[in-house]
Computed example of a mutant assay.
Amino acid sequence: MNEKKKRILEESMKLFSRKGFHATSIQEIVEQSEVSKGAFYLYFSSKDELNIEIIKYYSELVFGKLEKIQQQDMENRKKLQAQIQVLIDIISEHKEYVMMYPRELVHVGKDIDQLIQDSNKKSFEWMKASLLQLYGAKIEPYIIDGSILLEGLLHGYTKAIVFHNIQIDTTALSEFIVDRLDDMIQNMLHNHVEPQVKWSQLSYPRVKEETNTSINVQDQILLVKKQIEQTNIEEQQKEQLREVVEVIEQEWRKERTNMVIVRGMLAELAQIESLKKATNQLKISMGV
């Protein structure tokens, strides 16, 4: 991103958090950013467009860093801890954004509303994938409750950091949050408690339909098994593929799924042309 544009975005967030969106003029923004009005209008046609770009900038910053960690080869628990630490660090560095929203969302239009919905959906998808990677298929009935618990922990601590200006060891805090989440999840699993929020209760049909499609790992595994039997290959190769699927299924059911093994097995399946589509869908279902 152009450095001038980035500076305008960041300085605008500071002004909006202090004065409010409506009370901040474009003249104040250009003075604070140390750019000309011409430079401002080179990047933004209006203050409303600037507001949209702030949300895009912050969202891309957050999810870009989360995705970068997701691609790393590390144990799933450590991966979630690293992602949470990055989230906390970003929020600590961009307190102005947190203070700016949702206070300034009273004036939102359709474009901003859609951006926020998309961001919330991405956040949910990240939490869902993280829980599936950590706990396997047994967490499926508790995906929504688990996501709410994780979001609550994150929101509570980041709110304290932002509004009380708390200085904290983010490495220790990220480990603490994952440990407390694990305490709650393990308790639900051990005691077979009734989920408090179910898929049928979601008020966003689009999210509900897409999530239900992606979450049913066991159905996808069964589909792969069925297609193996229908594939025109030698029986010895079929037996090898059955063993591959068995490894995936067993690994997925473990308390700590080894995603390195799962990815390797999925790569084996994807080498068979007739299994590629079902294998790709299985990868999506597993959050790989």
Score class of each variant (00 low, 15 high):
Asn2Lys: 09
Lys5Arg: 15
Ile8Thr: 02
Lys14Trp: 02
Lys14Ala: 08
Ser25Gly: 11
Glu28Ala: 07
Glu28Lys: 04
Glu34Cys: 04
Val35Thr: 01
Gly38Met: 08
Ser46Ala: 06
Asp48Phe: 12
Asn51Gln: 14
Ser59His: 07
Lys65Leu: 04
Leu66Phe: 15
Lys68Gln: 04
Ile69Arg: 01
Gln70Thr: 11
Lys79Ile: 05
Leu80Arg: 01
Leu80Trp: 02
Gln83Arg: 13
Val86Trp: 05
Asp89Asn: 08
Ile90Tyr: 07
Ile91Gln: 02
Ser92Asn: 12
Arg103Ala: 15
Gly109Pro: 02
Ile112Glu: 14
Ile112Arg: 07
Leu115Glu: 10
Asp118Lys: 13
Lys122Thr: 06
Lys122Gln: 02
Phe124His: 03
Phe124Cys: 01
Leu131Val: 11
Leu131Gly: 00
Leu132Asn: 12
Gly136Ser: 05
Pro141Thr: 12
Tyr142Leu: 04
Leu149Asp: 12
Leu150Val: 14
Gly152Ser: 13
Leu153Pro: 01
Leu154Thr: 15
Ala160Asn: 08
Ile161Met: 03
Val162Trp: 02
Asn165Trp: 01
Leu173Gln: 06
Leu181His: 01
Asp182Arg: 08
Asp183Pro: 00
His192Val: 09
Val193Ala: 04
Trp199Cys: 07
Ser200Asp: 13
Ser200Tyr: 10
Pro205Tyr: 05
Arg206Phe: 05
Val207Arg: 04
Asn212Ser: 09
Thr213Asn: 11
Thr213Leu: 13
Asn216Ser: 09
Val217His: 02
Ile221Trp: 03
Val224Pro: 00
Glu229Pro: 06
Gln230Phe: 11
Ile233Lys: 03
Ile233Ser: 05
Glu234Ile: 11
Gln236Pro: 00
Lys238Pro: 05
Glu243Ser: 14
Val245Met: 03
Glu251Asp: 05
Trp252Gln: 07
Arg256Phe: 04
Met259Trp: 04
Val262Ile: 15
Leu269Ala: 01
Glu273Gln: 10
Ser274Phe: 04
Lys276Met: 08
Lys276Ala: 10
Lys277Pro: 03
Thr279Cys: 01
